[in-house]
């Protein structure tokens, strides 16, 4: 279970406060959506969950399975099952997708005290997962994300997610830059990973994605706090009325 308690976050180098007492609980087996206007702190939340540098937690805590993770390095969190699907995945020139996947898979397995995969085991595993996600195996021979289309990048993120078998998946604007067909492939991939042992936090701007990935709960994030929580129908309301109510309240 993910428990975010009264989380206050500011930028490390500036006095800008972004999250102002965010509280949120996502039990295992559930998918929660976070919606909110630009600048409400959605991406900051994703980065703080994953442990990116440049943010300072000034108050509150993040517990994953009852354990505080805010002092952990990003790779330790990854080993604990935290996975962030990036809005803008990084390009890594010269590193083939397969090399990256294998290095990551084995790094995580080692930290989870599992045996590292041999080459044949790994190849079998990656071929299975790629086929499920409709990913052309040839794509994995190219350097990670270099020259990928928006759709390829996001599918590659979901493949990484499938390979690393996380228990907490954070998807940051996974729908951005996707056409309808790509959106469907990516959503199917995410839905296939839904399960009783996995908690998911889907961050999005638009209700569109939630037609494909149907959430158990929807939270509205504005001005650094959760302003409202509801069922999946809340997303539809927001689509109609916009965020004015919340940004107005905040102002």
């Amino acid at each position: 279970m993910l428990e975010i308690k009264n989380l206050h976050v500011k930028l490390a180098d500036e006095d800008k406060v972004i999250l102002k007492g965010l509280t949120l609980t996502v039990p295992k087996g559930e998918v929660h959506a976070i919606m909110g206007p630009n600048g409400s702190g959605k991406s900051t939340l994703a980065y703080v969950l994953a442990g990116r540098e440049g943010y300072e937690v000034t108050d509150g805590d993040i517990l994953w399975n009852g354990e505080s993770i805010i002092e952990m390095e990003p790779d330790e969190r990854a080993a604990k099952g935290v996975f962030l699907a990036f809005q803008y995945p990084m390009e890594i020139p010269g590193v083939a997708g397969l090399t990256f996947l294998r290095t990551a898979t084995n790094a995580v397995r080692k930290k989870r005290e599992l045996t590292e995969m041999t080459t044949p085991e790994f190849m079998k595993f990656v071929k299975e997962k790629a086929a499920k996600l409709n990913i052309d195996f040839e794509m994995l021979k190219r350097p990670v994300n270099v020259g990928f289309s928006g759709g390829e990048k996001k599918r590659s993120e979901i493949l990484q997610m499938a390979m690393l078998e996380p228990t907490l998946c954070v998807l940051d604007e996974t729908d951005s830059g996707l056409d309808i067909d790509a959106l469907k492939v990516v959503s199917d991939g995410v839905n296939a990973l839904r399960g009783p042992d996995r908690a998911m936090l889907v961050i999005t701007h638009y209700q569109r994605l939630l037609n494909h990935i149907v959430p158990d709960k929807v939270h509205v994030l504005a001005d650094g706090r959760i302003q409202k929580t509801g069922g999946k129908e809340l997303a539809l309301e927001l689509e109609k009325s916009g965020y004015a109510e919340f940004t107005g309240k905040a102002a």
Partner: peptide, 24 residues
């Protein structure tokens, strides 16, 4: 950060990126 989020330690991440840089 991207590499570390995927489970690589900082040193493993540097090694991976550099090896990509020198691949040719």
């Amino acid at each position: 950060f991207y590499c570390q989020q995927r489970g690589l330690s900082e040193e493993e991440a540097v090694a991976l990126v550099v090896n990509g840089f020198v691949r040719d």
